[in-house]
Design a protein around this nucleic acid. Sequence first.
DNA 1: AGGTGCGGGCAGA
DNA 2: TCTGCCCGCACCT
Length: 460
Amino acid sequence: VQRKWNLNDLKQFDNFQEWTDGYVRFIYGGEDKNAQRHLSGWAMRNTNNHNCQILKKSCLGVVVCSRNCTLPDGGKLQLRPAICDKARQKQQKKVCSNCNSALELLPCRGHSGYPVTNFWRLDGKAIFFQAKGVHDHPRPESKSETEARRSAVKRQLSSHLSHKKKILDSEVGRYNDSGGHFSNIHPISCIEGPERFSVVADTGFPITAQHYSSFQNTDPYKPSYDPIGFQGDSMSSFSKCSNARIYVPRTPCSYDFPGYINPNYPPLYKETVGSLPDADRVPINGPHPNIGVLGAHERSYDSSSKHHGWKQIFGKAGNGDRSDYGQIPASTSHPYYNTEYPCRYVRSPSPVAPALQTVITTTTKVSYQAYKPSMVKYNENVCDVKGLQNYPHMQDSISEGAYPEIKAPEDFSVIKAALGYQDPIPTKSERPDNLDIYRYGACMGNGFPGQSYRYENADF
DNA sequence: AGGTGCGGGCAGA
DNA sequence: TCTGCCCGCACCT
């Protein structure tokens, strides 16, 4: 279902998406608290892009058991990586409570070998969001869960302590009416800390529908579990954690690819040709030295992924154009396939991103650029995507050199126009023939039915 | 303590 | 020069 975007209807902001995945764009209302906080279910850390207008965040991946052990519940350990570097290092020194083997940070490499990136920009009434890349790892525990758990543990701890203190007070009161100082009160050992396992079923990615409702709430998460059972990251006896969150198993290889089917607002970023060199692309058919049981350090992916022979495999990326959607060869490779870490690569069949307008990471500058769409296959199992039929004018406009690079931040001006903004200074990017169609939600993953908007040239 | 955002700075391309 | 990333800092919860 698609309909024309009503330029004057500012109510049509997107509902906040916690688990965006894929090459998606959303426009949130400027008053959307979650958007204001740049929240994400994924563990995203700030990345300096030397552009104060646009906040860039990159995915940290997920912390898993290095032995990929199966928890007593049948699930897998999937912790949320700490955002703070030091905290993350500390986190990785801990061990799996289930098998005592080391924890391992599974880095995100879902964007051509780089972590998935999210871009945020506040612009008046709207908060523009763009994600680039498809997470090639299981979902970590959501932030709302983590926070709720921590607060729940705190509450539990404090209430328990106060309760214990009451008891002790009353006990001591029997003997000492003046009360006393209790310096030897220790927290109960079973409350070792707020960090606890996030557990997912063995074969699939966690279903986290329960997270969605946690957003937009003042109290983001009302735990239904008993926090008493919580344990720290390094807790030694998982069996105590009877309330570990268990995600409903999904069929193996199932995963939503909203990004591939959700289409696409004009990008916050458009990447200039070659801004992500061919060599930076992961040879998705090639070896993944850092996949599976990796070095613990999350940076390891970088050097290893950067210099493999994408060129050797695919040759010079087609036509010298860079298309994030087209980069992934349709027939074979997708970084989800991996023999060592099922969750990471099991998503199959592998849908392939449509060749849409450019997307991609950039930092300081943004450029518009046209490019030729790549040959794309769509997997029927995922969603019936009309593919490039939805982007006819895009194809039309894909003549090299048609759109010279345009520097940011005019990149947003198209959206501005859509929202009724009047940019006092016309910019190059305010082309009436912009090549973007906004459409999303027709086949949203993550349980979002979503609406479908379509932006067409005529709308601008 | 940890999350978040900013910005300086570095290294590789 | 561009880009990705590290790192420290400040501020907040």
